[in-house]
């Protein structure tokens, strides 16, 4: 879709206005939206947060976010205690191990931020001819996480929270696979 103002660039910002009983949608490209925001004071009332919100407000994205919030709200990092709420508020993680605890939550965001999803650059230790140090998301951490989830699962079953239990069970299975992968990896190394 082309921008409603310049008719040249692709529209990436969609702003809904209610005029009388009619709902109007304005489709703008990044540049025209910025220019309009500077010129038009009524437009300025829409602060950046709102404009950004609008970018993602295509209904699907919003729904996805809601389910993501529900699904991820109980997740926390067992090393530092950082939780999903903390990540949502600050956009930051609490410690290196958080990347393990929040990986599923972060996967798509990481993909959107970067040109790839796998590191191909420098590895510490390699350029000095030493073997790279063991990655911090190692077996011990996975095992600790697994134990924690197992306890949560037991509690959920005891409390007859079966929906929650099912989510936890899937999570545990996933971790077990990962742990197995790590072990295979260790065998090869």
């Amino acid at each position: 879709m082309l921008c409603d103002i310049c008719h040249k660039n692709t529209a990436t910002i969609h702003i809904q206005e209610i005029v009388g009983s009619e709902k109007k949608t304005l489709h703008l490209c990044q540049e025209c939206a910025t220019r309009k925001a500077q010129e038009d004071s009524s437009f300025q009332a829409l602060n950046l947060a709102e404009v950004l919100y609008n970018i993602s407000s295509q209904l699907n994205a919003e729904k996805k976010q809601e389910t993501a919030d529900q699904e991820h709200s109980g997740i926390f990092c067992s090393t530092c205690g950082w939780d999903y709420e903390g990540f949502r508020k600050t956009g930051r993680l609490g410690c290196p191990d958080c990347y393990h605890a929040f990986y599923d939550t972060l996967k798509s965001a990481i993909g959107a931020m970067h040109r790839g999803t796998t590191h191909t650059g420098k590895v510490p230790g390699v350029s000095q001819g030493k073997a790279p140090k063991r990655a911090p998301m190692d077996k011990a951490i996975l095992k600790r996480e697994l134990e924690k989830l197992q306890n949560l699962l037991n509690a959920a079953v005891a409390g007859e929270e079966f929906e929650r239990a099912a989510i936890l069970r899937d999570k545990i299975n996933e971790l077990k696979e990962q742990l197995k992968g790590e072990e295979d990896h260790a065998d090869q190394a």
Binding site: G91, R92, L93, P96, Y99, L106, A109, I110, M113, H114, G116, T117, T118, H119, G121, K122, V123, P124, P132, K133, A135, P136, M137
Partner: peptide, 22 residues
């Protein structure tokens, strides 16, 4: 001992710096 992961590279507080951290 740097925080490093084979898949995600250098681990940083904000995911926008992952990988090379550069």
């Amino acid at each position: 001992p740097y925080a490093f992961d084979a898949r995600l590279g250098f681990l940083t507080s904000c995911p926008s710096n992952l990988g090379t951290g550069m």
